[in-house]
Write a protein that binds this DNA or RNA. Structure first.
Lengths: 342, 342
DNA sequence: TTGAAAGCGGTACCAG
DNA sequence: CTGGTACCGCTTTCAA
């Protein structure tokens, strides 16, 4: 006997199913006594309102989709997800995860079949660039589309992004202000099918360096290494292969920076004594290795995006649909004035 | 005009709604021609089968719950979640996350209100000990309950756990075999309301040490420090305050071990030269700091748990419902024979 | 304040 | 192979 539907509860409580329904969802419309009686019987019978039925009736699905490239396990994706979930869960929504929507195969598949069509109330797109035609496809599902760190806001109902270009510009500028003369930007190769917002970081670095154009003893360069789990090793190798070791390094991410400070140490290059290095993200262990880094807060961005989504779903208009937040330099122990300690 | 239900598709395709339904869910029952026609019109009209309706009709919810302590952002929770999702998503299920179900407030709340009652097809319980009465409460929702690293398997329909006790026993044993004479176990204080499976690690350590009982020059102890974001600092302090610095350290987690190897280095204690240290988990950066550690694979456990859940939901019986997997020692660079390099 | 009844969008049994 | 038709469990007028 594990079948206690709304009718058996109604019967057991001696009321109509309408009343049972109201006792749960519109308690103020039901007399105190009746409500108590209903709720008690319901509990005794292990009854609860079915979300599926409510969803069907209401026309909503109480489900949202989150699209991402790579794995949910990456620091950024995870934080964003947790942020989104922290508001959506309480609002009664579940999240349907679509990973690796970046690669050709999955990507075409997703955008042509649109598995979410008529099955979600909103779509979150994290950190990868969606092509104009893809957005058009996506729009066919007729629900709000919210972007997080997407390179463009074209086609989105709302977006929230950090200013990657500006963040890395500041990073490089900081090294320059410190008097560094030979700085390099270390990053993973861009995936050309993706157009990730992260690629803007390199441009910020370059822009900062360009301001030094003409300065005689100033040198800079970009070191791009293959993606993959050995990217940090590749970067290490590339760095050590330079004919002159840089005095300042800007890294695309902390995941690049942290292995570098650890490994370079063993090769005699000690920070901040011999060189400055700045990460990006302020992710796990950045503090324990005392890394100076550009902080962003993807959890907060996820929350903000989710709040926008909830409003959009409710049919409200956003006062400020497209937000850009700045990353913030966290000064710790891996940067110092040029020549300072030597 | 964003209302294309199954009937308009049926009308537009000149068939009955039954046929439309079948074209989607039982293509083999529909003639090739009819199917094509239906699918085409459906696509043109932006139609798709509604999961809510299917759910309602089928009596399933196509949703599962995952209960955890602390944040989803922790390494362990995240990996397990990703593992569960990797199989449940393809099986058509969403995951409803319940975080912090460990603490009194939330805990009571969850188990008395049972928000998941009649709203999920299975429940995953991750890594915390559920009291007998709580399990009983949980059982009232009449769906499979699957445990992952739960201290007990009482009341669960299936569980998969790593043998924490054995894992840490082996860890300590390894240090002993290496000839270490003064070893310590470093961990965070247990939360007494929780009875986490992780607490068994300490017992494993102690058991290993007990085998040395009577050996004259052998010493061991347990160092337990307060939880919180500064737990690693506390451990560092406690370690340095010892009247004799240990020659071997077993850590409850890599998150404890990694900061320690990094920081102790600056205090002149260099591993593996001066002491051996072993982590637990093989989580992020364990390889880059070259940490010898006890590996567990929560992603795989999540997958395994999910596979069990899918079968259980389908009404199948599990051949082997309660699984225990062993952690595996990954030898890297932070352990060495006692006195070896000195 | 409460009850009756019409759907919401499918599924599946039963005919044809 | 296809169509008609009761539900699935709840919400929501409309009346009483």
């Amino acid at each position: 006997m594990d079948k206690a539907g709304i009718r058996e509860v109604a019967k057991a409580a001696g009321v109509s199913i309408s009343t049972v329904s109201r006792a749960f969802t519109r308690p103020e419309l039901v007399s105190e006594r009746t409500r108590r009686k209903v709720l008690d019987t319901a509990d005794r019978l292990d009854f609860n309102i079915s979300r599926s039925a409510t969803a069907l009736k209401s026309g909503q699905t109480y489900r949202v989709a989150m699209l991402m490239n790579e794995e949910i396990t990456s620091w950024f994706n995870m934080e964003v997800f947790a942020g989104i979930n922290s508001v959506m869960h309480d609002a009664g929504y579940d999240i349907s995860l679509f990973q690796h929507v970046d690669t050709g195969e999955n990507r075409r598949d997703f955008f042509t079949n649109l598995p979410v069509r008529r099955n979600v109330d909103a779509v979150f797109v994290t950190s990868f660039g969606v092509e104009p035609e893809e957005i058009q496809q996506l729009q066919r599902i007729h629900v709000p589309i919210i972007g997080i760190n997407t390179p463009s806001q074209e086609g989105f109902d709302a977006t929230i992004s950090i200013d990657d270009e500006d963040g890395m510009f500041s990073s490089a500028q900081h090294l320059i202000n410190l008097g560094h003369k030979n700085i390099v930007y270390v990053c993973s190769d861009a995936v050309d099918s993706i157009n990730s917002s992260i690629d803007a970081r390199g441009q910020g670095f370059i822009r900062a360096c360009k301001t030094m154009e003409g300065t005689h003893d100033f040198k800079w360069r970009v070191l791009s290494v293959p993606r993959g789990k050995t990217f940090a090793d590749s970067a290490l190798t590339a760095l050590l292969a330079l004919d002159e070791f840089p005095d300042g390094i800007c890294c695309q991410t902390d995941m690049m920076a942290i292995p570098l400070v650890l490994r370079l140490d063993r090769y005699g290059h000690r920070t901040p004594r011999d060189y400055s290095i700045i990460g990006f993200d302020d992710s796990a262990y950045a503090d324990t290795v005392n890394l100076t880094t550009m902080r962003q807060d993807p959890f907060a961005m996820g929350r903000a995006a989710a709040r926008k989504a909830v409003k959009l779903i409710a049919g409200e208009t956003l006062e400020n649909p497209y937000e850009v937040v700045r990353a913030q330099l966290v000064l710790r122990g891996t940067d110092s004035v040029y020549g300072g300690d030597r």
